[in-house]
Amino acid sequence: MRFSRKNLLIGSLGLFLMVGLVFSTAQSQRYRYRPELSESLYLPSGKLLKEISLGYRQFVADLVWFSAVQYYGEYRREDHDLRYFISLIDIVTTLDPHFIFAYTFGAVVVSEDLEAFSQGIAILKKGMSNNPTNWELPFEIGFLNMIHTRDMDVAARYFDLSSRLPGAPERAKRFAAYVYSLSGDATSSIELWEKYKEYTDNPYLKELADRYIARLKASGQGGVRR
């Protein structure tokens, strides 16, 4: 290869561009995290996304689900206050009305972390109207009622309904019997969450239960509510 003046010029230009790219990439990294972007997250409605996703709404639901999970993870790292979580769950369940885990996970997080019991129940009731034969949704409504309102009659009614739906495991029936046996007892929330852990198969819901038990223990309340 001859080192002509022209080749030298092209080589120098290439080197300059490479150095420029490396420098500009490095200096733009300081803007990688922009808190105002995630705080004022733009959320189109689930109905709009349902139409513009054409025939691929399941796939879009998954992408929004990833965002919801990541958003919850950020909250666990104390990056924000979880204020858009309900909207994210609403979008996911509008795009995919049969995504049962989104309802249960969303409702538990909304009731426990956001302490918005009625909105948690609303998520589960939306799920029930879209999936009337699913046993998990009334089971969760029963459990959240048991933990939050201590209305054992309402809780027992939902456990009973859950146990009579197709595919309900034996444990749903046992939970209904357990609740009937509790009526009037001042059972601690810790104990109820321990019981929940025993009855759910889902590792993510078990992990959430562990988190709430640890939180109750740390607060020193023991969580007795009547």
Binding site: F59, D62, F101, F105
Partner: peptide, 24 residues
């Protein structure tokens, strides 16, 4: 890569991505 992100919905996510990708 996406399975750990899918928290509790791995099977659903794999099925969604596969079917959508075949069609698209």
């Amino acid at each position: 890569l996406l399975s750990p992100l899918a928290v509790g919905a791995q099977g659903k996510v794999i099925t969604d991505i596969g079917l959508a990708a075949i069609s698209i």
